[in-house]
Design a protein around this nucleic acid. Structure first.
Lengths: 209, 209
DNA sequence: ACGTCCATGATACCTTCGTATCACCCGCAC
DNA sequence: GTGCGGGTGATACGAAGGTATCATGGACGT
C-alpha cells in the first residue's frame, strides 16, 4: 500500500547506543531518527508514516516511562520498545501495562531488536489504517447537525421512524428528511452500514491487537 | 448481580506463602483455594464465580509461565497475578505480554496484593458477563439452519431481500421466510440488533479492557 | 436586507419489509 | 408409512422505508 519508509525513532542519552542502533536500523531498510532526550522527541512534529519508538527508560529530565504516559494516549500509531541497562521488574511491568510492545535489557542481540521493531512497525501500520478510518468516520459524524445526530442515534438502536419522531417530538416526515441527510453525509449505503459506523464511533479509542 | 463469593486460587509450592495468602484473602472476604502445583490446579473443575489466580512463576514440574500458556486462551475469566522470589525482567515481560494482569516480586505489601486481586476480580466479573453474552449469541447462531445463516450473513451487509435472493439463487419470498426465522431465532428486535449481533459474533475472541 | 443552513411539515408515489396462509418436495427418524 | 423439519415458492395485504417537490420560519453571517 504505502511506499513510505517506516521511521524508527531512537531516544537514548548514550550516543554509542544511538549510533549502533542507527546502523542497525538503516541496514534493515528503515529510516532512523536519533534523539538524546524526551524533550527533543516531543518537539518533533507527528509523522504520517508507520513508525515506532525505541526508548531508553532512564533519561535526563523526562524519563522514558513519563514520556510514554504523555504519548501513549494519542499516539497509538507509535508503539514503544523500551531498552534499559539496569531495569527492574516493577519498571518493566509498569511499562508493559501502559502498553509497551517490548521491554529489552541491554545487552540485547541485533536479531531480537530487529524482530521487535518489525513487530512494532506492523502494529503501527495497522493502527495507522485504523486511525485513518476513525478520523474519516468522526469527520463525517461531526458534519451532521444536532438533529441529524439525534436521529442517527435513535435509528441505529433499531427504532422505527415513527418512534424516533415520537421520542424527539417531531413528525415522521421530518425524521425521514433527517435520516436521508444522515445516510448521505455518513456515506452509508444501508442501515446496516450505519449501525456498524455507530458501533465504531461509540467504541473506546483502541484495543490492542 | 451474582452473590457468589469470588474465588482466589493460589498456586505456590511454598506452604508459608500459601498460608499467609490464605489468611489475607479470607479476611478480605474472598474464598481462597490453595494448591501447590500447576497439575493440581489443572485438575480442578472450572468455576462459574468471578475468580483470579495468584501464581508463582517457579513451580516444580509445570512452571507458572507454562501454566499460563495452557489456560490463558480459554480461561479469559480468570486473570493471572504472578508472584516470584527471583524474577527477572524478560520473565515479567513475557508474562505481561501473555496477558497477566500483574507481576509482583516478593516481598510485596498486603495492600499491593489486595489491590491487584480486587482489580483482577473486577476483570473476571466483566469477562464472565461478556462470555455469557457470547455463549448465548453463539448458541442462537448455532440454532440457525445453513440457509438461515447464509441469509443472515448477507442481510447484515445491508443487502436487500431481492439481492440476497439473487446471490443465493432463490426467490425473494423464500428469503423473507428465512429472514423471519433468523430474527426469531436470534431474538433480534430489528435489523440494527441483528447487525450488532453479527458484529460480536465475527469479532475476535476478546480484547483487553 | 439578503442568502444560507437548519429544522420543520405536507403531499405524492414507489419500493421494500414483514407476515400470514397455503402449497410442494425432500430427507430422516420413529 | 407417518411425522417433522428444512427448503422452496406463491398470493395478498398492511406497515414502513425512501425520495422528490414544495413551503414556512428562525438563526447567523455578510
Amino acid at each position: 500500500m504505502s511506499q513510505t519508509t517506516p521511521i524508527v525513532f531512537v531516544v537514548d542519552d548514550d550516543i554509542s547506543v544511538r549510533e549502533s542502533l542507527e546502523l542497525l536500523i538503516r541496514n534493515a531498510g528503515w529510516q532512523p531518527e536519533l534523539l538524546a532526550t524526551a524533550q527533543e522527541f516531543l518537539a518533533r512534529p507527528r509523522v504520517l508514516a508507520p513508525s515506532c519508538l525505541v526508548l531508553d527508560v532512564s533519561l535526563p529530565g523526562l524519563n522514558g516511562l513519563e514520556l510514554q504516559r504523555r504519548i501513549a494516549a494519542d499516539r497509538t500509531d507509535m508503539p514503544i520498545i523500551f531498552i534499559t541497562g539496569h531495569g527492574d521488574v516493577p519498571m518493566s511491568v509498569q511499562a508493559m501495562k501502559a502498553g509497551a510492545v517490548e521491554f529489552l535489557t541491554k545487552p540485547f542481540g541485533d536479531g531480537v531488536m530487529l524482530g521487535a521493531i518489525r513487530n512494532a512497525i506492523e502494529r503501527s501500520r495497522n493502527a495507522l489504517g485504523h486511525d485513518a478510518e476513525m478520523r474519516e468516520l468522526r469527520d463525517r459524524h461531526a458534519s451532521l447537525s444536532r438533529r441529524e445526530r439525534q436521529v442517527m442515534a435513535l435509528v441505529v438502536t433499531g427504532k422505527l421512524n415513527k418512534q424516533v419522531g415520537g421520542d424527539l417530538g417531531i413528525s415522521e416526515i421530518t425524521v425521514k428528511a433527517h435520516r436521508g441527510q444522515v445516510m448521505r453525509k455518513m456515506k452509508a449505503g444501508s442501515v446496516a452500514d450505519l449501525v456498524k459506523m455507530a458501533g465504531k464511533l461509540s467504541s473506546p479509542p483502541a484495543s490492542r491487537a
